[in-house]
Design a protein around this nucleic acid. Structure first.
Lengths: 328, 328
DNA sequence: GCATGCGATGAAAGCGATTTCAGCACGCTG
DNA sequence: CAGCGTGCTGAAATCGCTTTCATCGCATGC
């Protein structure tokens, strides 16, 4: 039913070998014949059978992308970019949703990754040991938004994000800033705490502890923030910031007049709320693109690694602290 | 390097044929031998080579999902569900983002769909003719969130969504309701207009025309809504509703006191804004699951088709109209 | 006792591409 | 003119698996 290479070869009056070469190794065929074959192939609507090609070359033309939750805009944005870049390089993308489950994650990598030309592991929940096991398979793996197990990776500059946010707040006059952190196991949360610890500004940092990286987590952290006496709060992500804004409004705390709030991620929703959210923007599309490029790049012995810059986007939730600021 | 069926067969002391049967057609092999082979396969960590299997069976174990924009929460939610259901049936999902481009969409289907066991086309932008062309290829295709070209499809009950929304508003006392529509080519927008036309309630409907289905579109429609004299507005989707809320706030129109607003989709953001959005919820996960089931179901001659129920979620943006309502 | 049938097995033929290998024709060099 | 490299080409092997097809016991029925 489908047009095969033999059909093309026959129609062009050449052998299958020549037809194959004409299409995928043009220099090996006499120009005249080559064009003939290509024309015939086009006319017949020939499409090479990926399975047959994979069987012999070992390359499937597929990349496997594993994310913890496709419903999360963070990951769908990365997935979109990965998909676009992969297509540009002639690859299709098999997407797998690990449902935030480290066990399922490992299984998916083993199952789907085995037949792919490479695996992109997005913010893996897996332990370092499991990551190492994946790597031991020899198949190219690249971690997105996490470092570990000596594997190639692409991350964003979390430390610098924190620094930019706090510098902004410091410039506004804030001297006491609270941090509402994400889940304690989170790799990026750890990097942000590193950033807070390494500040060389005249700013006191209050740790509000670990919270679920969702709306409700921000609600809970809001009361802690108010009690902390800080004039500004940094949250682990935008969802938490939104929850915090909601709770603060309920409690009659005005944002940004009484308290400034800075989120992380620049989720689409950041511009949809009022006041719009000041937040640290992640280059998600670039993250996806770079991931594909690094995964596909010929390995020159060393382990590829890339740190992407982040950018503070100042919007409506940050302002100078109230005049009657608490004495320190 | 990888463990092949031959390796398993040799280790188990049987022929490759028997090993193959033991794993994929168990009844054809003597119980004792069958278990032996399966144990050996497990111990060796055997994973069948998908390409080899596809080459002979013609089934790749892949489904292809084409969406207009993965970054849109609507589609990423469907994608998530599709992926989960597909995995349950032993399929991997190749996701393609058509970037809202009908031409690219058709190309992706031709390219990726050709080697897949089936294609899920989500809210296709393609013309009916192009859809028919896709279908003519003989490959199983299923439309999600659109009907057309005599192809199998899964849709949500847009008409009923509109009916539920308007009935809710009518019950609150509204008698003049505006509709801010989406892009004029949109299939679902057409169905909603059908719903509006078929109402049997004592409610006057004002058409605010077509708008881009994004935040900005809602902003533009807001002024029209105010001018229309309607006491409630229905928007094509939640993003538009959000834009409308923003603009209304700017203009000093209170929601829901002065004007009620109802969105469509129940996007995650609907609960993150204040007041939270009354909206018509789509069963997105179910849409994805049903799509996979219908695509994979054995065709019994007739064309599978399924209409899923929607549900109005009443939140904070709807209330009775102001007492000093405009006279009709 | 012999034909029959049945269940279980293995040998072998592909599936559709790529890729080695050998062969052929040709032109050049010494 | 012998010898050799060069440029193209086709025959054939191969990738890992499934699936006929034939075979072989062995029990059953007449």
């Amino acid at each position: 039913m489908a047009v095969t290479l033999r059909d093309v070869a026959r129609a062009a009056g050449v052998s299958a070998a020549t037809a194959s070469r004409a299409l995928s190794a043009p220099d090996l065929v006499a120009p005249e014949r080559r064009e003939l074959v290509r024309r015939v192939a086009r006319e017949l609507g020939y499409r090479p059978n990926r399975a047959a090609r994979e069987l012999i070359t070992g390359r499937s033309g597929h990349l496997c992308l594993v994310v913890p939750d496709l419903g999360n805009p963070f990951f769908s944005a990365v997935a979109k970019a990965v998909q676009a870049r992969a297509r540009a390089t002639g690859h299709a993308v098999v997407v797998a949703d690990a449902e935030e489950d480290p066990v399922l994650e490992a299984e998916l990598v083993a199952q789907l990754g085995g037949q792919a030309d490479g695996v992109l592991l997005c913010s893996p929940r897996m332990s370092g040991d499991d990551l190492a096991a994946v790597a031991a398979d020899g198949r190219p793996v690249l971690l997105v938004n996490r470092e570990g197990a000596g594997l190639p990776s692409v991350v964003v500059d979390n430390r610098d994000g924190v620094r930019q946010a706090v510098r902004h707040l410091h410039a506004l006059g804030h001297r006491r800033v609270a941090y509402a952190g994400g889940p304690s196991g989170s790799w990026s949360d750890a990097r942000r705490r590193d950033g807070l610890a390494a500040l060389d500004l005249d700013v006191e940092v209050v740790d509000l502890g670990a919270h679920a990286p969702v709306f409700a987590g921000g609600v809970g952290a809001a009361d802690l923030a108010v009690a902390s006496g800080a004039t500004a709060v940094l949250t682990h992500n935008d969802l938490m910031a939104l929850g915090m804004l909601d709770r603060l409004r309920t409690r009659g705390v005005r944002v940004p007049a009484d308290l400034s709030v800075v989120g992380f991620d620049d989720a689409p929703v950041a511009t949809l709320v009022t006041p719009s959210l000041t937040t640290v923007a992640m280059p998600l599309a670039r993250l996806g693109r770079t991931a594909v490029d690094l995964l596909l790049a010929p390995r020159g012995g060393e382990v590829p690694h890339s740190v992407l810059p982040v950018e503070l986007v100042v919007r409506g939730t940050t302002a100078p602290p109230p005049e009657t600021s608490e004495p320190r």
